[in-house]
Computed example of a mutant assay.
Amino acid sequence: MKNSKILFDDFIKEITLPESRDEITALAYLVFEAQFDLSRTDILLGKSIPADAFTTSKLSQIAQRINDHEPVQYILGKSLFYGRYFFVNPSVLIPRPETEELVHLILSTHAKDERQLNILDIGTGSGCIPITLNLEHKHAKVSAIDISDQALATARRNAEWLNAVVNFMQCDILHEQPVLSDLDIVVSNPPYIAYEEKSAMHSNVVDHEPHLALFVDDKNPLLFYDVITDKSKLMLKTNGSLWFEINERFGKEVAQCMQRAGFVDVNIHKDASGKDRFVSGLFIDPQQ
């Protein structure tokens, strides 16, 4: 048995990333929670844990991978989202806190709905959006699509692990129309980072996370928003809503895209950092 606080401090000393002490400590807490099921309080109190030579060797290997700028979520194979752990790997993006905010906005908007909500998530990745909506709203009937078979395999594994019911389908949204209709909600966190922004990004993101889910052509940064907005009109029922996570640079442009397509009550929502991060709007069917 070994004092977890001593082991924790030794682990932090092995991390040589050029980050603040607070950031490195936060990474270390993630590792110790995943590896030893320890809370911060457990560590601060020095709770004793089994720790042999194999354990310390494994911790050193994890520290080295962190020093090589590999995301800790990929090292651990899981990431926390909305209070649940999701399996992640390099075929899917690591779920972000901003996407938790998007899910929370949707749930808050529909908190009092007692009718069935038919929902589609476009570009689902790990499945964190549709799975969370299914588990958090008792009337949510959720489907999700992605172009990547590997991403869909990860999403299905997460749904099974978390006992969620989601209909996952392979679909290239740029070239195919999902065969769905009468939807109450379409939500998407599509690729929205222009390649010209790549040089300003951290290497742990650029070198490890899937570019297919991150980047869009510099010449057409609104490509996915234009396509998804148009295709959503064929799937949403009247008064159905479309929700996007966006690049903070393009809030007004995404809102205008939706307005041109006939969506009403279009709103730009800020994230916890005060940046334009989400856009929502209602579809009114002109034929009704």
Rank of each mutant, 00 (worst) to 15 (best):
M1V: 05
M1H: 14
K2E: 04
S4V: 04
E14Y: 13
I15N: 04
T16E: 10
S20N: 09
D22H: 12
L27F: 12
A34N: 12
Q35Y: 03
S39C: 11
G46L: 06
T56N: 14
K58M: 13
S60L: 13
R65S: 09
R65V: 01
N67G: 12
D68P: 03
Q73S: 14
I75V: 05
L76R: 13
L76A: 07
K78A: 11
R84G: 10
F86H: 11
F87D: 03
L93R: 04
R96D: 11
E101C: 11
V103F: 00
H104E: 14
L105M: 08
L105I: 10
H110R: 09
K112F: 06
D113E: 08
D113T: 09
E114M: 06
N118R: 06
T124A: 07
G125F: 05
G127W: 04
N134H: 15
V142E: 05
A144P: 14
R157L: 09
E160H: 01
D172W: 00
Q177A: 05
S181R: 02
V186I: 15
A194G: 13
Y195W: 02
A200H: 07
H202V: 08
S203M: 04
V205I: 10
V206W: 12
L212K: 08
L212V: 15
D218K: 12
K219Q: 14
L223E: 14
I228S: 00
T229S: 08
T229P: 04
K231V: 06
S232M: 10
K233W: 11
L234V: 01
K237I: 12
G251S: 02
G251N: 08
A261E: 00
D265V: 12
N267H: 06
D271V: 01
S273V: 00
F278H: 10
D285N: 15
P286K: 08
